[in-house]
Each structure stands twice: as structure tokens, then as C-alpha cells.
Write a protein that binds this DNA or RNA. Sequence first.
DNA 1: GGCCTGCCATGACGTTTGTCATGAGCAGTG
DNA 2: CACTGCTCATGACAAACGTCATGGCAGGCC
Lengths: 206, 206
Amino acid sequence: MTTDRPLRVLLADDEHLIRGALAALLALEEDLVVVAEAASGPEALAMARAHRPDVAVLDLQMPGADGVKVATALRAELPDCRTMIVTSHGRPGHLKRALAAGVRGFVPKTVSARRLAEIIRTVHAGNRYVDPELAADAISAGDSPLTAREAEVLELAADGAPVAEIAERASLSQGTVRNYLSSAASKIGAENRHTAVRLARERGWV
Amino acid sequence: MTTDRPLRVLLADDEHLIRGALAALLALEEDLVVVAEAASGPEALAMARAHRPDVAVLDLQMPGADGVKVATALRAELPDCRTMIVTSHGRPGHLKRALAAGVRGFVPKTVSARRLAEIIRTVHAGNRYVDPELAADAISAGDSPLTAREAEVLELAADGAPVAEIAERASLSQGTVRNYLSSAASKIGAENRHTAVRLARERGWV
DNA sequence: GGCCTGCCATGACGTTTGTCATGAGCAGTG
DNA sequence: CACTGCTCATGACAAACGTCATGGCAGGCC
């Protein structure tokens, strides 16, 4: 384990308080150096392009583009840059999306800074790290039983829109939309589509 | 401004990463000292009883009891302890609840640590501080136009329950429930009760 | 090639809604 | 006291919704 070259980190979090504090704490680690900070998704991308960090630590919820979107873009633009997600609310679905996007680390904000530094090193070494508790949640939540279209229609129904509007936005007939919503709700075990939306959200299926 | 006696601060946040980082940053301020940390509502209360801080900095969302509940309890038990809320997602309703509970500071986590330290001093001096943007949101959201029963029924409708169930839980007839939901939705300006629930939540009316 | 599954649609049916009119009891206010 | 607003209820009607049966059409698999 040579420490000849410091590990360059990009920090992206819209909460200034946390980002600053985090940067200060990570600076205490000998082998880590925070080369850039960002407060939004697009800014994170721009910073990554400019500074080419070894590891990008991304908050899940950021204005502009969320952590997973940023990770996807980074994977395409800077394949050498490892990405990891830090989040407050670890929903199973987020974890899945993140792993699919090539994210190599997924940790809740309940870990300590020291532990985070360790995980950053782990990720940089090419390994993966997923918080055990979040992983357990994801496994217990299981895979989505919904087909692609069911999930799509359910998502459009998320804000309480009437069937007519969903049909228009999905370019489907109203009858088809009703059928999809019906089958989605029965698969999920919900009485109606609204509770179906809620449950699907909780389980990370939308 | 004499610095004879340091300002004793209690820090409560369930996210270890943030709490630790925050403690480190606040420790840099000459006149502040973090005398206790807590990761949950009940723990925050216990710590406050034990250490009697001058100012309690509380996260809004914590397991056990949220920041506002803790502030309410502190107000009763330790009237000399000023309380302030720090939050990621500043909903207008939270602000109102907080102020009603006697909280003297309400800031989003997007502020810098230095700014937070200033606000802690402001609050300790007996003044109030509310983030201007959150205040503007709260004002623009206005007061709830809903009557007590309308709000109650709307809340019961929050999880997508059918009218029959709401009627039973509220001990009302189904027709009455429909009427209340209808009037609530029209007051809010929503197409149906589900969007009404969503909007009311956003504005802090439920 | 058959078979299955997912995708899309239509039509029909009964149920659940949203909406409106209407009314009665009951508080608080000018 | 009259007035207003909230509460609760009923009945009725149209619209929206959930469910089912049915069918065509694509793609993957034995």
C-alpha cells in the first residue's frame, strides 16, 4: 500500500453544510485529497470533467440530476473514475438503479467519516461496497413483478393524474391504461392504483 | 462580546457522517463547544437532561421523535435551553410546527458551517432566525383554507384508502366523506383527492 | 413450426368517485 | 335576534375507475 500519490476525490452534495463538513473531515486523511466540490448534478459533471478525480462521491438527491444520473454520465465520459453514492434515505430501488449504473459504492449517511474514508479506498481499489443493511432491504424487497409498461404507466399515475391524461402521455388507449394499472395493482397486492403507487415506491419498483 | 464562558451546544442528527463532521467544524469556532451528540429523538432528550446545553441543534427527521417533538419536550423540561432545527427538506408546514413549538432557529442544510455558527450565536442571544427562503415559502403557501374536518378526512385519504374505509375510521357517512373530500379538493384547486393530498402535504396543511 | 409471454386494444359491466342540491342542528358574531 | 360558517346527512346523476373476456401481433424458446 504505497501512499506516493494521493487519492483524488470529487464531493457532490447540495447541502453546503454537509459538503463542507465532509471535505474537512476527509482532509484529515493523509492519502485523500478533495479536488473538487459540487452542489448540483450538472455542476458535479462539469467538475469531474475539469478535475478528473479518482473517485466521485455523489449524494443521491441533488438538484438538476440525481446521483445515479451523474454516475451514468461519468461512466460514459470518464470510465476511470469510480463512483459511489451517499444517501440519507436508502430505498431498495435506488440501490438497484445505482448498481445498474455502474456505481461501486452505496452507503447511508449514518456511517462515520473514518468509515467513509475506508470505503472510498475500497472503491478506488476496484472493489465494491454496499451497506449490509441496505443490501438486506433490497433483497427482502425482491425483484419487481411489474412488466416495463406496467411500471411506466404506474409511474405516470404517481401524481394522481386521471386515466385520460396517463393514456395521452403514454400514447396508449384509456382501456389499455386501465388494464395495466389493474394488473399492476393486483400484482402488488393493492386495492387501487394509488396505494399501488405508494407501495411500489416504498419497494423501489418505480 | 466577552468569550469568558463557551457556548454549550447539543447536536442531534441521526446521520453519523453529518453529525461528526458538523461537530468537527463547530469545534473550530472559539466560542462554541459541542457538549453532547445524539442520533435519535429520545437520545437527544436524555443528553439534554444530562448536559444542559445552551443551544440544542436538532435535525428535523430523526428516529424515535422528530426535531419538533424534541423541541416541545425541551421547552417544558429545560426552558433555558434554546432550540433550533436544521433540515434538508424545508416544507412550509414544518416551519410552522417548529415555530409553534418555540423553536428559535430554522435553517436548511444548504448553509455553510460558519453561517450556522453565527446563527447558533444569534439564537443563543435570544433572537430568532428563520431562513429567508423557507420563510418566503411558508408565507406564499399561506394558511390552510381547510376546515378541521376537511383536513382530518383528507389525512385519512392520504394512503389511498377508499371512501368506505375513511368513513368508518372517521365515523362519518360515506356521503359526508365525499362531500368533504370534494370541497377540500376544490379549495386546494386539485382535480381529485389524491392530488389534493399531495398538494396539501407540500404546503404543510396536513 | 408450435407455444408461451408480453404488448396493445376494444367493448361491456358494475362499482366507486365527484358533484350538486338540499336540509337540519349548532356554534360564534355583529 | 339574525346571520354566517361549520358539521353532518341524504339522494341523485354523470363521470371515472376496476375488472373481465376477447383478440391480434410481436418476439423468444423447445
